[in-house]
């Protein structure tokens, strides 16, 4: 860890002695501030979007919300820290390895918590995933302890200046990986048999099983896939926010908000919802009140729900058929 100090090259460390105390800071214009809020909002929002996509994949097949989604993100971060920092495997290998390991957890979650349900009602599945999330969080606490962990960023810590605002290089990675996820998922659902089968399950599970799709198998695939995406989210956000065992719940709530705002089950909705919530939080914190920043996003969400009960891009018909 000691050599981390070399990540910083802007040479400002020298000015922060006692002599620097009384200096005034360089000015920042209002438009640069706005830009900075937008950059921050998009970065955080991308993570919410990734969590929301994970929710959607499972929802589309099972109609249930997987409350352990946030734990996948947490695990992604912590497993990556273990492989990258403790075992010292380069990013290019540790990243796919982490995703594979967390995907295994997703598969186990389906096999041990979802499949054994004798009457898989939506409520039972929700409670099962809540139970599983407690279990995973507890296990992570036993394994990693309670302290936060850091992961070196993929490409250094030198911020990039842009029109008076700064961009963290890791922020670019976050947004980039969201794009990759969106593109890969679009191709997967449009071009592959497995993806098409998943979509069929989403439209009508009983009809899909009539045409020979194994729905139980598809549930497994959905859990594996959303665990993989959650893990990716965790890996890319850890260099920005650090990671500790109990962060999953907050990410799950934010991701769920994003998911509902966009309309449950809709992938463009998840991305829109995630980015919107990130932006409102950041702009609300900067321009109005940072104490109430989470309230603004939620009020918008409530407003949208009251006007459009199935979210921004959700399908009203679909949400009518599905009941709790």
């Amino acid at each position: 860890m000691a050599n981390c100090r070399t990540y910083w090259h802007n040479g400002r460390t020298g000015t922060t002695g006692i002599t620097g105390l009384t200096k005034n800071m360089e000015e920042i214009s209002f438009s640069s501030q706005l830009l900075q809020y937008a950059i921050t909002g998009v970065t955080i929002g991308s993570i919410y979007a990734m969590v929301a996509i994970g929710f959607n994949i499972i929802y589309n097949v099972t109609e249930a919300i997987n409350f352990a989604q946030g734990e996948f993100v947490m695990l992604g971060g912590l497993v990556m820290v273990f492989l990258r920092v403790a075992v010292n495997i380069p990013v290019i290998f540790s990243l796919p390895l982490t995703i594979m390991l967390v995907t295994m957890v997703g598969i186990l979650l389906d096999r041990l918590a979802i499949k054994p349900l004798s009457k898989p009602s939506v409520l039972a599945m929700v409670i099962a995933t809540i139970g599983a999330s407690f279990f995973i969080r507890g296990a992570a606490m036993m394994l990693w302890g309670k302290n936060p962990f850091d992961l070196p960023p993929f490409s250094g810590r030198n911020p990039i200046s842009f029109l008076g605002a700064v961009v963290q290089p890791q922020g670019l990675w976050v947004v980039g990986f969201l794009l990759v996820v969106v593109v890969v998922l679009t191709l997967f659902f449009d071009r592959t048999i497995l993806g098409k089968a998943l979509r069929a399950c989403a439209v009508n599970p009983s009809a899909s099983s009539l045409v020979g799709i194994n729905v139980k198998h598809m549930v497994l695939v959905s859990f594996a896939l959303s665990a993989a995406i959650g893990a990716l989210g965790g890996i890319v956000i850890t260099p920005i926010s650090l990671m500790e065992y109990d962060r999953g719940a907050m990410l799950a709530v934010k991701g769920f908000s994003a998911c509902v705002l966009g309309g449950i089950g809709s992938f463009p909705g998840a991305v829109t919802g995630g980015l919107l919530i990130g932006l409102i939080e950041s702009l609300g914190a900067g321009l109005v009140s940072s104490g109430y920043k989470d309230v603004f996003a939620l009020l918008l969400l409530l407003f949208v729900l009251f006007v459009r009960p199935s979210g921004l891009l959700g399908n009203a018909e679909v949400s009518k058929i599905r009941k709790f």
């Binding site: 105390l21 005034n24 800071m25 000015e27 209002f30 501030q33 900075q36 921050t40 920005i240």
Partner: peptide, 18 residues
Amino acid sequence: KDTDMTAQLTKIKGLAPQ
């Protein structure tokens, strides 16, 4: 459990405290 405090700090930066 917030992930990033850039927004709050950006606002502070605009007010230029010592």
